[in-house]
Write a protein that binds this DNA or RNA. Structure first.
Lengths: 233, 233
DNA sequence: GCTCGTCAAGAGCAGTGCTCTCGTTTTTTG
DNA sequence: CAAAAAACGAGAGCACTGCTCTTGACGAGC
């Protein structure tokens, strides 16, 4: 036997996968609100009502796609990070930046689903969280590693003092960026949100085609960001 | 006469305004994809088909809402900037940051329409651009003013050289941040995208309630951002 | 006073998510 | 091995959507 699954369970798993595949293809073409259970059923040659045997609602299908998306970008980030020597913290940061950006530009609609405006009426269930923090966890390890190695040397400047109310929050964020002081947590958050801010502008068309060589502009911006974070490039 | 408009034109303008008002209210409650022409008509006590006398399609209504939204945030930013002494460039930057954030948190669905993922199938017409750059223009003047006044002193660090391909792009961006060198353009873009990146994380729930005192965290982050941009705080 | 353009309303088309029922098929149980 | 149980696909149907077309009424200008 290939497995202990019954024939029914095997065909069920196969059909479930096919549904998500078709859905992902529709998502790539028409975006989240173009996702139609009836269209999926039509393309698969089955009745629309049959889809509900596999996904109880459109939102459940959306949740599956979101989790898959988080895992995809998380895996891309993990691979990019693993391809750089661990002690080259600046290189790891740049690899992560480009991995996120490349994935976002290759799957703009999926990216929008993850990091854009939430789908109205849809409330992401809590089980998306583990997948959602995969990329952030990689980033946190980079910052943490660099700090532990003493390779985090931010430019000499007068930074305002971290507000006292941030101490508690920093403790929570430290689950993802372990063993760093509060001011590193702050700089880490700034760089991380800055990365996604730039990518959002690019993917969502805010730059309005004003940048002709977006790759090197992005690369340079993230290099500068690395410097203010304290990484040597 | 209150104006040279005929009675018909006046009631038409009045009805058009009422439609957008109802639409904005629906938008605030249900988000962009919950915007229903039939529901608007129902709430106004008129036939759904009558709406089409005023807006030829749902997308046209959406465009009106988007332009109104850009103007609202633009006006908020302009007012915030004007309330600070022009020579206090750091204060102006912080005022702009908080103005954008406050508006975004007060109108999350409208903000999502402007700076989140684009509505699938909807292509923003070119006449949204003038309204869309109002806030950016204010920001550009702040950076430009600070540079001209010699008040832009970025922290001393080794920044990578600006890539040659960026020269042309910088010229285009300089329409909004006039009279500054290329490296200031880059830092300006980083700070601007960083502002929206942070706000996006907050509005779109990426922080996942990990930050208990979001106002002071945001304030501190933007103060740090100001320092890397070169503004004194 | 009459014509002409503007307007609201209604019916209708094609599409959507979702539910329910009804046979059929497969698995599990006796 | 046969019977009960569970899973399944198909179809009809409900309430909803954006949008179009036609019909009839109302008001402004000649």
């Amino acid at each position: 036997m290939s497995s202990s699954l019954t024939a029914r369970e095997r065909v069920r798993a196969e059909l479930t996968r096919e549904i998500t595949d078709v859905a992902r293809r529709q998502l790539a073409v028409d975006g989240a609100s173009g996702l139609s259970l009836r269209a999926i059923a039509r393309e698969m040659g089955m009745a629309s009502s049959a889809i509900y045997r596999y996904f109880p609602s459109r939102d459940d299908l959306l949740t599956t796609l979101i989790i898959d998306g988080y895992n995809a970008v998380g895996e891309a980030v993990e691979n990019a990070d693993a391809a750089v020597p661990p002690e080259d913290h600046g290189g790891r940061w740049m690899a992560v930046c480009h991995a996120v950006r490349d994935w976002a530009l290759a799957h703009p609609h999926e990216y929008a689903l993850l990091y854009g405006s939430p789908v109205p009426g849809y409330r992401a269930p809590q089980d998306t969280v583990p997948a959602a923090v995969r990329d952030t966890a990689v980033y946190g390890r980079i910052v943490s590693d660099a700090h532990r190695a003493g390779a985090l040397n931010p430019p000499d400047t007068t930074h305002p003092p971290v507000p006292p109310s941030f101490h508690e929050d920093a403790a929570r964020v430290r689950e993802l960026i372990p063993d760093v002081p509060d001011d590193v947590v702050v700089r880490g958050l700034i760089a991380w949100t800055g990365l996604f801010g730039w990518i959002n502008f690019e993917v969502f068309g805010q730059f309005d085609n004003a940048i002709l060589d977006p790759v090197s502009a992005f690369d340079h911006a993230m290099r500068c960001q690395a410097r203010t974070l304290g990484l040597s490039i």
